[in-house]
């Protein structure tokens, strides 16, 4: 007697698979660990107590108030953040030519001071503009695109070429001193708005 071979109906298999596929498609989130990287200063106790006087000309002051309005070098700012990036670049690369601007890229400091009431959105926008200025200077010196520069700086020790470009961009001297450090100072916020 011939045994009947049991058949599992498989016409619905595709439907089931599609259902599962849709579920995983919907729940998958591509983790994005991207953002603006900064290095905070050491804890307040570890800082040397004697305050070093920095000449006014070497500080590029950006202030943001609690209603997200900008004050750049003491004047109200109405232009775009692209314009701000250009201004910061001019300031850093002044190298002593204009007596009211910075002495050298080494001494130039970009100071960013917000208010406690400033929104994070505005703060990021200004921080982005300041980092853009530095990245553009670095990328220009290293002879790479800004995008490539950011990739290099995330992992400079990837290969000898990236290390070399990284050092060239930041003007690293033979004794390891950085000629153009990213001197971005984020000051304690003022306490006007809540």
């Amino acid at each position: 007697m011939a045994r009947s071979t049991p058949d599992i109906p498989n016409s619905s298999m595709a439907d089931i698979a599609f259902l599962l596929l849709t579920f995983f498609l919907m729940t998958t989130t591509v983790a994005s660990d991207k953002g603006l990287l900064i290095l905070l200063p050491p804890p307040p106790e570890a800082l040397p107590p004697d305050e070093v006087e920095i000449p006014e000309r070497n500080i590029f002051k950006i202030q943001i108030n609690s209603s997200d309005k900008l004050l750049v070098e003491g004047n109200p700012w109405f232009s775009t953040s692209r314009e701000l990036t250009d201004q910061i670049k001019i300031f850093i690369l002044n190298d002593g030519r204009d007596p009211t601007s910075s002495d050298s890229p080494l001494k130039a400091i970009v100071s960013l001071k917000a208010d406690r009431g400033t929104t994070h959105k505005k703060f990021i926008e200004v921080l982005d503009a300041a980092q853009a200025a530095y990245h553009e200077i670095y990328a220009n010196r290293a002879g790479v695109s800004v995008k490539r520069w950011r990739e290099i700086s995330s992992d400079p020790n990837e290969s000898p070429e990236t290390k070399q470009a990284y050092d060239r961009g930041r003007d690293v001297g033979p004794n390891g001193t950085v000629g153009i450090p990213m001197a971005l100072s984020i000051a304690e916020p003022s306490k006007v708005g809540g």
Binding site: L40, P43, R116, G117, T118, T119, H120, K121
Partner: peptide
């Protein structure tokens, strides 16, 4: 950080992270 969060709180967090 949410875009609407205020800088004051974030600055407090930063101070703690420095410590």
């Amino acid at each position: 950080v949410d875009v609407e969060a205020k800088r004051g709180l974030i600055s407090d967090v930063e101070t703690e992270l420095r410590k």
